[in-house]
Write a protein that binds this DNA or RNA. Sequence first.
DNA 1: GTTGCGTCCTGGACGC
DNA 2: TGCGTCCAGGACGCAA
Length: 263
Amino acid sequence: MRRQLAPLLVGRRVVAAGSHPAANFVAARGIVGAQFDGLGRRGKYLLGACDDGRELVIHLGMTGGFRLTPGVVHAGTEPADRYVRAWWDLDDGSRLEFTDVRRFGRLAVVPAGRYEGLPTLARMGPEPLESGFTPEGLRASLRSSDRHLKTVLLSQRPVAGVGNIYADEALWRAGLRPARRSLLGPASCARLHRSIVEVLSESLDRGGTTLRDYRTLDGSEGKNQFHLDCYGRGGRPCRRCGVALRHRMLDGRSTTWCPGCQR
DNA sequence: GTTGCGTCCTGGACGC
DNA sequence: TGCGTCCAGGACGCAA
């Protein structure tokens, strides 16, 4: 999403904006007059750098997405689509719309780099595809919590960007049980580290995972959903050992694992 | 400071 | 066919 948006957004100034009245979205209106100097990303957060020293922080939640309408918009008019939760009219006549059916997304405007009001972002672990993410660091981070292994991964503290689907996939690939609480040894941690990197890299290469709602900026679907080994396959045979995968709620999240080969 | 759980929200699947 | 119920997801807030 960031790669697609950046060339269309950077250098553009916001001339008008609007939003759904919910607290999650009203911050969209606060950047009228600002120009986008860059578009970054941390974990699942998009970070729009403004020329006035502030940042527009965007989390897509579960069903969030973007749509860019080029050059046909009358600035300030209400969007026709009821699921547009925020919109920005740009100085080239285009409009960027943030759509979010279930309203789990959220927007914030903060001084650049000041994330105190966004605790998950403030304490976010290393980027999984950068050199700061190491097996040793992962092991040290996991050691600092007694919670279920999968729940710790979802906290974004050991590593950024792992959501429910990729947590299940990475743990399956590493042969580790999601509900495990005990300390991981160096070999297990190295396996989990490698699995996280592989699972995320492969999904990025395939344009992401479209189960229901996710679309890229041009409306196309990802293809990673055709390559899932674990998530959503409860009751079906494990592709590694043949044992039926199990499914249950773990700490409130839908979780699938193989009782045969995830230890 | 950490943990566990409820809450937010809504379309779609499912059962009756 | 219509209605009610449940589920899915990420992050945050609150009580313990």
